[in-house]
Design a protein around this nucleic acid. Structure first.
Lengths: 114, 114
DNA sequence: CAGGAATATTCTCATACAGGTATATACGCA
DNA sequence: TGCGTATATACCTGTATGAGAATATTCCTG
């Protein structure tokens, strides 16, 4: 499970993160909310843990999981170069890229559908 | 290949999108830049096309591909609830979530490592 | 129309991985 | 100490999918 995107490719893992985004939760809570067998939840949590997406704290027999931001931030960063495709605001970077695109011939025809 | 995240899980597909983010490119250009066999590039492009990440235009024998923003925008939207974990700016949504978190007991201990 | 360039498709194979079941480990409590 | 709860791990199996090689398709050019 190399990349952050590979970890997020699994729908149940995204569901776990979404649940944890609003508050910390124990494995039991997650299991109940997701209506998923407990071993399955534990295995997904392991992948999320090893990917750095979550951290856990021991509380008696419970393990309480919470979101860790770092890997999601990396995903956010990866998206940065694409934001110009949907942000109306034309900043310096976009102007630069549009110049490059324009200079490779056949004028600026952006975002039209096939 | 259900979700946008599953499409992005493949490193070569992310590389293709990154190349297309700066400018439209033909399959041949992508093949050359990525040092990947052409059938491989075509197959990845097919997945990207069916996922709505790219669109193509025919130009003689060439197919020129370009980025299509929609699915990336969905990924961006999915990230939204997590941004409060790394953005210093406390907006209305965050205040709301912090109130929810606080009301479930054990006071606001956010983002500490294990 | 033949030949060649550019791209897509098909096939086979190997492998990663998610689901399911059973079991192990850790901890609190009576 | 022994049982019950909470979570993790191990094992097995089926399947989706990426790589590689061969071939098909499309379209330009001479």
């Amino acid at each position: 499970m190399e990349s952050a995107f590979a970890v997020l490719a699994e729908p149940h893992r995204r569901a776990i993160l979404s649940l944890l985004s609003s508050s910390e939760r124990s494995v039991g809570e997650l299991t109940h909310r997701l209506r998923l067998p407990q071993p399955s939840v534990s295995k997904h949590l392991k992948v999320l843990r090893e990917g750095g997406f979550v951290a856990s704290r021991v509380e008696a027999q419970r393990r309480v999981y919470r979101v860790n931001a770092k890997p999601l931030q990396e995903v956010d960063a990866w998206l940065a170069p694409f934001r110009r495709f949907w942000s109306r605001h034309v900043d310096a970077l976009e102007q630069h890229l549009e110049r490059m695109e324009g200079s490779s011939g056949k004028g600026k025809r952006r975002h039209e559908q096939p």
